[in-house]
Nucleic acid binder design. Sequence first.
DNA 1: CTGACTGCAAACCCTTTGCAGACCG
DNA 2: CGGTCTGCAAAGGGTTTGCAGTCAG
Lengths: 168, 168
Amino acid sequence: MKVDKNEVERRVERFQEAAKKAGFKLTHQRLEIFREVAGSADHPSAEAVLRALKPRMPTVSLDTVYRTLWLLNDLGLVSTLGPKRESVRFDANTTHHHHYVCVCCGLARDFESAELNSLRIPESVVQFGSIDATHVEVRGVCNRCAKEQTEKSEKNNIKPKGKERNTI
Amino acid sequence: MKVDKNEVERRVERFQEAAKKAGFKLTHQRLEIFREVAGSADHPSAEAVLRALKPRMPTVSLDTVYRTLWLLNDLGLVSTLGPKRESVRFDANTTHHHHYVCVCCGLARDFESAELNSLRIPESVVQFGSIDATHVEVRGVCNRCAKEQTEKSEKNNIKPKGKERNTI
DNA sequence: CTGACTGCAAACCCTTTGCAGACCG
DNA sequence: CGGTCTGCAAAGGGTTTGCAGTCAG
């Protein structure tokens, strides 16, 4: 599934600007890797990006794809979904519930809300398939991480970083 | 963080019933592993379950924990969050959007909704920490999987399974 | 008793890292 | 040209699997 061509070019321009501003090199590989993610609506994995790239760039390697994608992530040009580098976690709460997730340490907590259990989902979504359940994920920085960041920044006199390859 | 003791016992009973009904053996290990997940509100990883179990059951092994947790998952007694057995996926759409996810094949699609961008989150959630963003995840079976399941069940004359260690 | 279950170790997959050569700016 | 970036190969972490012994029913 393809993203609209104009949109892709707009994203590529934003990338080139960001590259200049952040002072990292704009290599052939980086450009093609970005073009590939930006042009796909499938949320490709690193492997999928590599596969798509191989025909045009036979020498590109998987580790470069990873390095570049995480770089883009750090720059805020892409985000991740699903698995971070973490293990599977299990939940014995079988009632319909929602999650609060700390973007900093990954802490997850359940909460319930009748209101959120019955959200109105846009018409357009049914075109994808059946709708079995809807879950809300609230992201933020948990109390503990907030405290640690404040302490750290007080000690080192730097501003809290907030993001560190944690997208959840 | 602990789950209410009565709730745990209720869950354990449900587990024992399910074990009897499904005809699998109710071993000491399985019981303790289930008691551990059921008693924790932290959504523990397999490793965390093992660590918690070691003092009481020094011989239990990580692979048994995994096997049991997936068994419980297949029985619908626990669910997973975060990483399945899959790789990280990247998304170059930087606008606030939501996801439709197929529980069968993992297909993910973006959709936008101003309404869903500004959900009212229950008071109680702020006790966990700051709220930076809220995302809605709609789960269902995508058109393609629905079609394949129908075809398969027509051919083999069995009902669609729907669930196969895919919880997203 | 006997088939299902466990523990062990080895395999597996995805991702990251160290290093020497290549290339952008 | 110099420092950054790439490709390679090897390591790493989490999870799964094959097998022989063990245990619940």
